[in-house]
């Protein structure tokens, strides 16, 4: 597995660039990851990032888009607005988590 340097942090990533060790993620890395994919984080983004991190810590896998919406209470439309086009994958990336595995 390759490593890459993001904002001075060396992190392990897969071939696509997703972090493979969620424990290497820190809150100061999120804005840098976001910037790399053209996003500027707001409080609304942070609410989801914190939800995703907490949910991963409990469930051991990344929440799907539906789970992120139903569990956090943020409507699906809002998720598409905050993380355009591919919300589930973008949320996961910024949160330093693997892509969601679930289908729905």
């Amino acid at each position: 597995m390759p490593t890459t340097t993001i904002a001075g942090h060396e992190v392990d990533v897969n071939d696509e660039g997703f972090l493979t060790k969620p424990e290497q993620w820190t809150e100061d890395l999120a804005p840098e990851l976001a910037k790399l994919i053209g996003l500027t984080l707001t409080d609304a983004h942070w609410e989801l990032i914190r939800f995703l991190r907490a949910d991963y810590a409990v469930k051991g896998e990344t929440a799907t888009l539906r789970r992120a919406s139903t569990q956090s209470g943020v409507p699906v439309k809002q998720l598409f607005a905050l993380f355009p086009q591919k919300p589930a994958k973008k949320m996961a990336y910024v949160s330093g988590l693997p892509k969601p595995k679930g289908c729905v």
Binding site: I6, G17, K86, Y93
Partner: peptide, 17 residues
């Protein structure tokens, strides 16, 4: 310094559709 490895989310100017 080398460029970080960043996933492609398919939303670049020549992608999508």
């Amino acid at each position: 310094m080398s460029m970080p490895i960043v996933p492609s989310f398919g939303d670049g100017p020549d992608e999508g559709g």
